[in-house]
Design a protein around this nucleic acid. Structure first.
Lengths: 131, 131
DNA sequence: TTGCTCCTCACGTCACGTGAGGTGGC
DNA sequence: TTGCTCCTCACGTCACGTGAGGTGGC
């Protein structure tokens, strides 16, 4: 089965599948957040399905208001924890730190939702005729 | 009652009451989003309670992913609608445009919440010992 | 006069956006 | 050979952060 070979896609496909810009994927490559698994002879970035999965995970972490560097650290922590179990106290402290931030973020998202809903009502009042 | 006079506060108080940085308030002043009602003789920004209310409204609009210029336009639209009713078709079109964006944003916030909750579970699995 | 708060530049930062000029590969 | 996709600079942008150097006002 040669479908292992075919699983590599160019940056355009990766961008389409993840709904991100080419520039964003190139930037994430530059800072080391998602390095494509391979390059073609001509230097084209070639993304594997695992790469795309990682991109989607990162995309889903964006609303947490973490910097790219923090996302990178957090992904590394999760990987280490998966690989070796939680043996290091330092690792556990960092993970707990990010759990706290995630909880804060969830609270903020809930407030944001309330505000957005309220704004929608205000706008509806400002444009009452049915569209 | 001279409490009308006393209702003006300096930028530090305004920042404390809204939980924003001095720099943010100065920036919003620079771009014309929130101009303090007055300046002291020495040039200090003096914010009224109405100013602070406006700041809080704007702060609550930040999660909608609007630019400061768009927030400014939207606030202007709501004011016009309040003042003259919805007489202009153009005004109504813009308001509806922002309603759509708000709906999109609400959908995104809900997805973000799901992701954040999921991440919290992943992190909890990575740091299972009780803190 | 001392402190604390405020002021205006003005450069730095983060995460990209946006061309410019050039090449890969079917 | 033509198109479309991709490449690397490199400057621009948005919303501020962060000093530098100086002043207001109780």
């Amino acid at each position: 089965m040669p479908n292992n070979q075919k699983a590599l896609v160019q940056i355009g496909e990766a961008a389409a599948q993840t709904d991100l810009s080419l520039r964003t994927l190139r930037h994430w490559d530059d800072v080391g957040l998602v390095r494509p698994s391979a390059r073609s002879n001509g230097g084209f970035r070639m993304y594997s399905q695992a790469d795309i999965k990682r991109i989607q995970v990162i995309k889903s972490m964006k609303p947490l208001a973490l910097s790219l560097a923090e996302i990178q650290e957090l992904l590394g922590l999760i990987e280490s924890a998966d690989a070796q179990g939680v043996e290091s106290r330092k690792l556990e402290r960092r993970v707990r730190h990010y759990m706290d931030r995630t909880r804060v973020c969830i609270a903020r998202l809930n407030r944001d939702l309330d505000y957005a809903t309220e704004l929608l009502e205000i706008l509806a009042a400002a444009a009452p005729t049915k569209g």
